[in-house]
């Protein structure tokens, strides 16, 4: 029993770290543009495919790629996806910045459709094997077992999130980003380059999302063109759960969601005598999403919505 608990905790931490990387992208974009970027899940998917392609270009046998090639592919891929994110924002969202609230969302749905089909055409709709980024080894810790892949994912995610934290809170560019997300008009009046800040966000969000995609594919050893949709939605749930717009909230929400999912999937078949099985795993994320939005729309760490700011005009 104890062993199972430790084991599931390790699993939840790993998944939570990946959700967190993606959730950050949703939350940063929402914080600045008040827009749900439906194409963000595709950045996650693109990350895995970009890394795969880069690896294939560098080494003949992907399964036997060395540490250097893997590192190069990882960073090359996340940078590529970051630039793709900036390009997508310029082409598909920027022209709609003064349009209705829902126009960019619909546009992002179109982008998502485009990217998924594009990858399907280019790489085929079938799942593909993805190499392990880290040598696969198993360690016994506290009665449960943790693989080196899991440890690698946790460390990589931790470093990336720490990097984001210092960037946002300590660097000059980070302060600019925060100022723009606090109030775009005020930032504009202060002479801040708002477009630049938005581009930066559309660089960092996809970059982190892509890193999540590479780690995820490496964890499960597989990638598919459609994997962005479900994982993306879960990461979005995590962002809402933590309080959309809040960076620490996104991380907290991601870990909570991962734990609920893991625990729920493990417990429900026992509680219901097998009537409800693990196939309802995905329902948890949606159920949590709906409950949070209904009862605490500001999320765990989000600011409570004041009565005045509830004033929206037409949405589309």
């Amino acid at each position: 029993m104890w062993g199972t608990i430790v084991q599931q905790t390790f699993n939840a931490l790993t998944i939570g770290a990946i959700y967190a990387l993606i959730a950050l992208g949703y939350t940063m974009v929402y914080g600045v543009l008040r827009m749900i970027n439906f194409a963000h899940g595709e950045m996650f998917m693109l990350g895995a495919y970009a890394a795969f392609v880069l690896l294939a270009l560098m080494v003949p046998d992907i399964g036997a790629a060395g540490a250097l090639a893997l590192t190069a592919a990882f960073f090359g891929a996340i940078l590529l996806v970051g630039f793709a994110g900036v390009g997508i924002e310029r082409l598909a969202y920027k022209p709609l910045r003064h349009s209705t609230r829902l126009a960019p969302m619909l546009s992002s749905l179109g982008v998502s459709l485009f990217l998924v089909t594009g990858v399907q055409i280019a790489a085929g709709p079938q799942p593909r094997m993805f190499p392990h980024l880290f040598p696969n080894q198993r360690y016994e810790v506290l009665g449960g077992s943790i693989t080196s892949v899991q440890i690698g994912i946790l460390i990589a995610a931790f470093i990336l999130m720490l990097g984001l934290h210092f960037f946002v809170n300590r660097s000059r560019l980070g302060i600019i980003v925060r100022a723009v997300s606090e109030s775009r008009p005020t930032a504009q009046l202060l002479g801040i380059n708002v477009n630049g800040a938005i581009s930066l966000i559309f660089f960092l969000g996809p970059l982190l999302g892509a890193s999540g995609g590479i780690l995820y594919s490496s964890y499960y050893g597989i990638m598919t063109p459609t994997m962005g949709a479900v994982v993306g939605l879960k990461a979005f749930t995590a962002a809402i759960l933590g309080g959309i717009g809040s960076i620490p909230g996104a991380m907290l929400g991601a870990f909570i969601l991962a734990f609920v999912e893991v625990v729920g999937t493990a417990l429900l078949p026992i509680l219901t005598n097998g009537a409800i099985g693990t196939e309802y795993r995905d329902v948890f994320a949606f159920a949590i999403l709906i409950l949070v939005l209904l009862f605490r729309p500001a999320g765990l760490l989000g600011e409570a919505v004041s009565e005045e700011s509830m004033v929206y005009k037409r949405e589309f």
């Binding site: 008040r34 979005f236 309802y280 995905d282 949606f286 999403l289 709906i290 929206y312 949405e315």
Partner: peptide, 25 residues
Amino acid sequence: LPVLRLRGDYLAIVTLGFGEIIRIV
């Protein structure tokens, strides 16, 4: 009943969730 007090993007995402739940069920 439960979702209609939400607005805009939140409503979109919750209805999307309901649609997916029905399909999974």
